[in-house]
Design a protein around this nucleic acid. Sequence first.
DNA 1: GCGCATTGATGGCTGC
DNA 2: GCAGCCATCAATGCGC
Lengths: 80, 80, 80, 80
Amino acid sequence: MDDPVQGDQLKSIVERIERLEEEKKTIADDIKEVYAEAKGNGYDVKVLRKVVALRKRDLEERKEEEAILDLYLQAVGETA
Amino acid sequence: MDDPVQGDQLKSIVERIERLEEEKKTIADDIKEVYAEAKGNGYDVKVLRKVVALRKRDLEERKEEEAILDLYLQAVGETA
Amino acid sequence: MDDPVQGDQLKSIVERIERLEEEKKTIADDIKEVYAEAKGNGYDVKVLRKVVALRKRDLEERKEEEAILDLYLQAVGETA
Amino acid sequence: MDDPVQGDQLKSIVERIERLEEEKKTIADDIKEVYAEAKGNGYDVKVLRKVVALRKRDLEERKEEEAILDLYLQAVGETA
DNA sequence: GCGCATTGATGGCTGC
DNA sequence: GCAGCCATCAATGCGC
């Protein structure tokens, strides 16, 4: 641990994470801005969020069904 | 609502949000990757997370203290 | 806080929670048993879990759609 | 799989699991209610949770110690 | 100030 | 038996 190289590696890891988290926060703020702007244009934010969530869910649902289909196929025919 | 322009605006809003959320997810995945890589190099992820959280907290406290200091300075007639 | 009645109330709260958590654990164990039994009868537990999860998701999806429909109706007609 | 009896068995398994999961959810909701009620009576939920968690841990540790004690007793030729 | 939604942490289950 | 994965649960932050 006192090895400078090890210390540098740790430092590098932490800094990479912090950098990425900043970027993530920036994007999260951008999203908030879009909602705020939409609200300013008369949209109901709650509804908007529902729409986005529902579309996301639909997408996941579709993926999920594919996954279970694959499982069935494997269970029946031994091969994917 | 049946106004095509309004519909397009709504569509645009939803798509902008979805685009941003994808970016956010990409970054979140990057962060996970860094942790996974660190783990592969023998670091304790739990500890790592604590370090990051602690630094974040420290940073926020420092900002908070600066903000308070600014208030004090203003209160005594100094311009920050 | 030193009021015995207050102390008893706290005790009562904690005990109610603990009782409920025990019940919850019992049920969780029952679920495990069912899976184990199914496995003993030749069922693929992984597939079983997928089936259960998928059905749950379908149900939630339906509820979600109803919720968003209600929101739309409210947004349009002012009344639920 | 096309055997009706097998199909019924599968159905039965899934339904038993779903029934149990509903019960589990009911209890989880009851627990939430108790916390909410406690909050309404002026208790700090966060602290309450700590209390419950601590007692749980204590209980587990006591069991653990008993288990170790049993092992010791067996090791010296005593029957537990 | 409260409730909600997201995010992070923990513990349990499964597969190797 | 252990590591990785997943589901659950607690905590924080945000919006109303």
